[in-house]
Measured scan of single mutants.
Amino acid sequence: DYFTVDMEKGAKGFGFSIRGGREYKMDLYVLRLAEDGPAIRNGRMRVGDQIIEINGESTRDMTHARAIELIKSGGRRVRLLLKR
């Protein structure tokens, strides 16, 4: 199942961390959800969800650093296409 999650940044960021990336020879996944962060309050994202797109850009062969950069580059908002 594919689904989109739109979030607005909180005081401590978006409230999730990721693992994976090209340099680890793996796809990008949601690693952790911060307690009471925007990701957990949104209610749609879960640990283990695969991140397919960040702000419309495919994560295929994307490095971990580039993924972080893209998440931050959207300013106060981020849109993720996830797969569960």
Score class of each variant (00 low, 15 high):
Asp6Glu: 15
Glu57Met: 09
Leu33Tyr: 03
Asn55Ser: 03
Tyr29Arg: 12
Thr63Tyr: 15
Leu31Asn: 12
Glu57Cys: 12
Ala39Gly: 08
Phe16Arg: 00
Val5Cys: 15
Gly13Glu: 05
Ile18Thr: 04
Lys9Cys: 05
Ala65Thr: 10
Arg79Gly: 07
Val78Arg: 00
Gln50Lys: 13
Phe3Arg: 11
Asn55Pro: 00
Gly37Asp: 08
Gly21Ile: 02
Glu53Gln: 13
Ala34Asp: 14
Ser58Phe: 12
Gly10Thr: 04
Met26Arg: 12
Ala34Pro: 06
Lys12Ser: 11
Gly13Met: 02
Leu33Ser: 03
Ser17Asn: 07
Leu82His: 00
Gly56Ile: 00
Gly74Pro: 07
Val47Ile: 10
Glu69Ile: 05
His64Ser: 14
Leu31Ile: 14
Ile52Arg: 13
Leu80Val: 09
Arg66Gly: 08
Ser58Trp: 05
Ala39Cys: 05
Tyr24Val: 13
Lys25Cys: 11
Gly43Met: 06
Glu57Val: 11
Val78Leu: 11
Asp6Lys: 11
Gly20Arg: 01
Ala65His: 09
Arg32His: 11
Phe16His: 02
Val30Met: 04
Glu35Met: 09
Arg46Val: 08
Gly20Val: 01
Ala11Val: 07
Gly10Ile: 01
Val78Gly: 02
Phe14Ala: 06
Thr59Glu: 01
Val5Phe: 02
Gly15Ser: 02
Met26Lys: 12
Glu53Phe: 05
Met45Glu: 02
Arg44Pro: 05
Met45Asn: 01
Pro38Phe: 05
Arg60Ser: 13
Phe16Gly: 00
Leu31Trp: 12
Gly21Thr: 02
Lys25Gly: 11
Arg76Thr: 14
Leu82Ser: 01
Glu35Ala: 13
Thr59Ile: 02
Gly43Val: 05
Val78His: 01
Lys12Pro: 06
Leu81Arg: 14
Asn42Val: 08
Gly56Phe: 04
Glu57Ser: 10
Arg22Ala: 08
Ile51Asn: 01
Phe14Ser: 04
Phe16Pro: 00
Tyr24Gln: 15
Phe16Leu: 06
Gly15Cys: 02
Leu33Ile: 15
Arg19Thr: 08
Phe14Tyr: 14
Leu82Lys: 01
Gly75Met: 06
Thr63Arg: 07
Gly48Ser: 05
Ile54Asn: 00
Arg79His: 15
Ala34Gln: 15
Met45Ile: 11
Met62Cys: 11
Ala65Asn: 10
Arg79Thr: 14
Val30Gln: 00
Asn55Gln: 07
Gly21Asn: 03
Asp1Cys: 02
Arg44Gly: 12
Gly75Lys: 12
Asp27His: 05
Arg46Asp: 14
Gln50Ser: 11
Arg77His: 12
Arg41Gln: 12
Asp6Ser: 13
Ile51Glu: 00
Thr59Phe: 01
Arg66Val: 06
Pro38Thr: 09
Ser58His: 11
Asp61Met: 07
Arg79Glu: 15
Tyr29Pro: 01
Asp61Gln: 06
Leu81Thr: 14
Tyr24Ala: 15
Lys9Trp: 10
Arg77Ser: 14
Lys9Thr: 15
Ile40Ser: 14
Met62Pro: 00
Arg77Cys: 11
Gly13Lys: 04
Glu8Met: 03
His64Lys: 08
Asp49Tyr: 01
Leu33Lys: 03
Glu23Phe: 02
Glu23Asn: 06
Lys9Ala: 15
Asp27Arg: 07
Ala39Val: 05
Ile52Glu: 14
Gly15Trp: 01
Pro38Ser: 13
Leu33Cys: 05
Met7His: 03
Phe16Val: 03
Arg44Val: 14
Tyr29Ser: 12
Arg60Phe: 10
Pro38Trp: 05
Lys72Trp: 07
Gly56Gln: 08
Gly43Ile: 05
Ile68Leu: 15
Glu57Tyr: 13
Thr63Ala: 11
Arg77Trp: 11
Asp27Val: 04
Gly37Pro: 05
Arg41Ser: 11
Val47His: 10
Asp27Tyr: 05
Arg19Asp: 15
Met26Trp: 03
Arg44Ser: 14
Leu28Trp: 03
Thr4Ile: 07
Gly43Leu: 04
Arg84Lys: 10
Glu23Met: 02
Ile18Phe: 09
Met45Cys: 05
Arg76Met: 11
Glu57Pro: 00
Val78Ser: 04
Arg60Tyr: 11
Arg19Asn: 15
Gly48Asn: 11
Ser17Ile: 11
Asp61Phe: 08
Gly37Leu: 09
Met62Ile: 11
Met45Ser: 02
Arg19Cys: 03
Lys83Pro: 01
Arg19Gly: 14
Pro38Met: 07
Thr4Gln: 06
Leu81Phe: 06
Ser73Leu: 13
Glu57Leu: 10
His64Trp: 09
Arg77Thr: 13
Arg44Ala: 12
Ala34Tyr: 15
Val47Phe: 04
Asp36Gln: 12
Lys83Ala: 15
Gly10Gln: 09
Arg60Pro: 04
Val30Pro: 00
Thr4Ser: 03
Glu8His: 04
Ile40Gln: 13
Ala65Cys: 06
Arg79Lys: 14
Asp49Gln: 06
Arg32Tyr: 14
Leu80Phe: 05
Ile51Thr: 00
Leu28His: 06
Glu53Ile: 04
Gln50Asp: 04
Arg19Glu: 15
Ala65Tyr: 10
Glu57Thr: 13
Pro38Glu: 12
Leu81His: 08
Val30Trp: 00
Gly75Ala: 09
Tyr24Asn: 14
Ala34Ser: 14
Arg60Trp: 07
Met45Arg: 01
Arg66Glu: 13
Val47Pro: 09
Lys12Met: 09
Leu80Trp: 00
Phe14Ile: 04
Asp61Ser: 10
Arg22Pro: 04
Ser73Cys: 10
Lys25Trp: 08
Arg66Thr: 08
Asp6Leu: 07
Met7Leu: 13
Gly37Asn: 10
His64Glu: 13
Asp49Trp: 01
Pro38Val: 13
Lys25His: 09
Leu82Tyr: 01
Asp61Tyr: 06
Arg32Glu: 15
Leu70Ser: 12
Phe3Gly: 02
Ile51Lys: 00
Val5Gly: 01
Arg46Ile: 10
Pro38Gly: 08
Ala67Asn: 00
Ser17His: 12
Asn55Ala: 04
Asp61His: 11
Phe3Lys: 08
Ser73Thr: 12
Arg84Cys: 07
Arg76Val: 12
Tyr24Ile: 08
Asp6Phe: 05
Ile54Arg: 00
Asn42His: 11
Gly74Val: 08
Thr59Trp: 00
Lys72Phe: 06
Asp36Ser: 09
Lys9Gln: 09
Pro38Tyr: 06
Ser17Met: 07
Asp27Ala: 11
Ile40Thr: 12
Tyr2Arg: 08
Arg32Asn: 10
Ser73Gln: 11
Leu82Ile: 07
Phe16Cys: 01
Thr59Asn: 02
Gly13Pro: 02
Glu57Ala: 11
Glu69Trp: 07
Arg76Ala: 13
Phe3Thr: 05
Glu23Ala: 03
Asp61Thr: 08
Ile51Gly: 00
Asp36Arg: 08
Gly21Met: 01
Leu28Val: 06
Leu80Cys: 04
Gly15Tyr: 00
Ile68Arg: 13
Glu57Phe: 15
Asp61Ala: 08
Arg19Met: 05
Gly43Arg: 09
Arg46Gly: 11
Asp1Lys: 15
Arg44Trp: 07
Met62Val: 09
Tyr2Lys: 10
Leu80Gln: 01
Ile71Met: 11
Gly74Ala: 14
Leu70Asp: 04
Ala11Trp: 08
Arg84Gln: 14
Gly13Trp: 02
Arg84Leu: 02
Ile54Asp: 00
Thr63Ser: 11
Arg46Ala: 10
Arg66His: 09
Leu70Thr: 10
Glu35Asn: 12
Gly74His: 14
Asp36Gly: 10
Ile68Gln: 12
Ala67Thr: 03
Ser73Ala: 14
Asn55Thr: 01
Asp1Tyr: 04
Arg46Pro: 01
Asn55Ile: 01
Val78Ile: 08
Asp49Gly: 00
Phe16Tyr: 01
Gln50Cys: 13
Met7Thr: 03
Leu82Asn: 02
Glu69Asn: 11
Glu8Thr: 06
Leu33Ala: 04
Gly48Ala: 06
Gly10Leu: 03
Thr59Ala: 12
Leu31Ala: 15
Glu23Arg: 03
Gly48Phe: 04
Leu81Lys: 15
Ile40Tyr: 14
Gly15Thr: 02
Leu80Ile: 08
Ile51Ala: 01
Arg77Ala: 08
Ile18Val: 12
Lys25Gln: 10
Gln50Ile: 10
Asn55Phe: 03
Ala67Tyr: 02
His64Cys: 09
Ala39Leu: 05
Asp6Gly: 04
Phe16Trp: 02
Met26Ile: 07
Ile71Arg: 01
Ile52Gln: 08
Phe16Lys: 01
Phe14Glu: 03
Arg79Met: 07
Lys83Trp: 14
Arg79Trp: 04
Met45Thr: 03
Leu70Trp: 05
Ile52Leu: 10
Ile54Tyr: 00
His64Ile: 07
Arg84Asn: 15
Arg22Tyr: 03
Ala34Ile: 10
Ser17Thr: 13
Gly10Tyr: 05
Lys83Asp: 09
Arg79Ser: 13
Leu80Lys: 00
Leu70Glu: 15
Arg84His: 15
Tyr2Cys: 07
Gly56Pro: 00
Leu70Tyr: 07
Glu35Pro: 14
Arg66Phe: 05
Asn42Gln: 10
Leu28Lys: 01
Ile52Phe: 10
Arg66Leu: 06
Arg22Ile: 05
Arg66Pro: 00
Ile51His: 00
